[in-house]
Amino acid sequence: MLPEVFLKTMIDTVKYDEPYENYNRRTELLTLLRKSMIIYNERFQYTRKPNQRWEDIELRVPVPMLKTARSLYLELKKLAAFVYIETDEFAFRDLDIRPKPIDLDNEEIKEHDVLFDEIKDEIIQGIRNAKYTIWVAVAWFTDRDIFKELLLRKNDGVHIRVITSDEKSNRYLIDELEQNFDVVKVKMRGYYLSNRMHDKFCIVDLEFVMHGSYNWSENARNNDETLATALDRDLVKKFADEFQRLYIEHS
């Protein structure tokens, strides 16, 4: 298995396999893996099988994340052993955590996904992953559960901006949004004031974006909706540019 395939399989296992759904350090594990690289180290020692040697998995992690990686060592080793495919030539022996060379830190793992079910849960998880900033641009924001998640992140020091449409259907939460976050309301415009800001996207830490048809409203849960997610710096930059344009023009 190619090292890149091995690492991607580890990431997807944490993302989708049932044992990790309620793992309390799942977010840390995913963040660490997404920024790491894999190297195979063949050993000269033989296993009990004829002509089969041991092989170690070397996980190279960014230097600032070494402490986190070491605290997750047992989980990482178990995951590596689970993903590893034993052959007639090699068998998994151990996981070795080492620093990732600095000049490789610019290498970027890109991930894209799309959901049609359990969209609200994915949005809440994306909010929970935020460490620094959350930029929200949604036409309708009336879902109190999502509001509460944003409030929790604010209380942990995350800076939050919200852009939403200035209309009657948004009155349910607008006062609380304005009391707690940096909020910009985009006025209705056009003939009969029938044109509105209709975006639905959320940028997390300027490196992850969630976008699609799903408004942050109570009604959206009963609709046929889509939500695309992307860990892709170039794509996130385009959404960030659009967010700044809306923010500046309507502040």
Rank of each mutant, 00 (worst) to 15 (best):
M1F: 06
L2Y: 07
V5T: 15
T9H: 03
I11W: 00
V14M: 01
P19H: 15
Y20I: 14
Y20A: 04
Y20N: 08
E21C: 04
E21L: 11
N22W: 09
Y23E: 05
N24A: 08
N24Q: 12
R26V: 11
R26P: 00
T27P: 01
T27L: 08
E28S: 14
L30N: 04
L30A: 07
L32M: 09
L33Q: 05
R34W: 10
M37D: 15
I39Q: 14
Y40S: 04
R43I: 01
R43Q: 11
R43F: 01
F44Y: 12
F44A: 10
Q45H: 09
Y46P: 07
T47N: 05
N51Y: 09
Q52K: 11
Q52I: 03
R53H: 10
I57K: 01
E58S: 04
E58M: 05
P62K: 02
M65A: 10
K67C: 09
A69C: 03
S71E: 15
L72N: 02
L72T: 03
E75F: 05
L76K: 01
L79S: 06
Y84K: 04
A91F: 00
F92T: 02
F92R: 13
F92L: 01
R93F: 02
D96I: 07
R98P: 05
K100G: 07
I102C: 04
N106T: 12
I109N: 10
K110E: 04
K110Y: 05
E111K: 04
D113E: 15
I119K: 00
K120S: 07
D121I: 10
E122T: 13
E122A: 15
E122P: 03
Q125L: 14
G126T: 00
K131P: 14
I134K: 00
V138R: 05
V138K: 03
A139S: 12
W140Y: 15
F141W: 03
K148G: 02
L151D: 09
L152C: 07
R153E: 08
N155H: 15
G157R: 13
K168L: 11
K168F: 08
N170K: 06
R171Y: 08
D175G: 08
E178T: 07
Q179W: 03
Q179N: 12
N180A: 08
K185I: 01
N195V: 10
K200L: 03
V204D: 03
E207D: 13
F208M: 12
F208H: 06
N215W: 03
W216G: 00
W216C: 06
W216D: 07
S217D: 05
S217K: 12
S217H: 02
S217L: 04
N222L: 10
D224T: 13
T226M: 12
T226A: 09
L227M: 07
A228W: 07
T229E: 11
T229N: 03
R233V: 15
K238M: 11
F239T: 05
A240I: 05
D241F: 09
E242M: 14
E242C: 07
R245P: 01
R245D: 11
